[in-house]
Amino acid sequence: MDQPSEKSIKRMRIYVEKYMQKTGTSGHPEPEVTESVILGLANNIDEVGRPLCPCNFYPDKKAEVERSREWVCACDEMKKWKYCHCLLFVTPEGTPITEHLPEDHEGRQIYGLVKDPTPGKGRELADKA
């Protein structure tokens, strides 16, 4: 497993910090979880040119990036519902926000109802939810 480039890692660190502020979310209480995801995003920038979410399986990453920006961070689920299954943008307790998800979404089944501590922030695609 090659280490991503410093340039991509730095780009993602800055992005993640700014996006947390914008959405009022927090990092995971276990720093290695956040670090791992940042490295995964940076690795995908190096590999396919976009910060594709490292918490999904793609049969073909290049084809996925060409297909849609759905899983490019911040993914559509984050922008619509403020839900990050990758645990990058979470509550201070380290749980993904599920309040805005449809009730039949897997996130609701896994984590139950998790209230959004900063409902006035984020959800730039809320109108498409």
Partner: peptide, 12 residues
Amino acid sequence: DFWAPWCGPCRA
């Protein structure tokens, strides 16, 4: 357990 090296929740 299907996992990937850079997946944070896989680590958790």
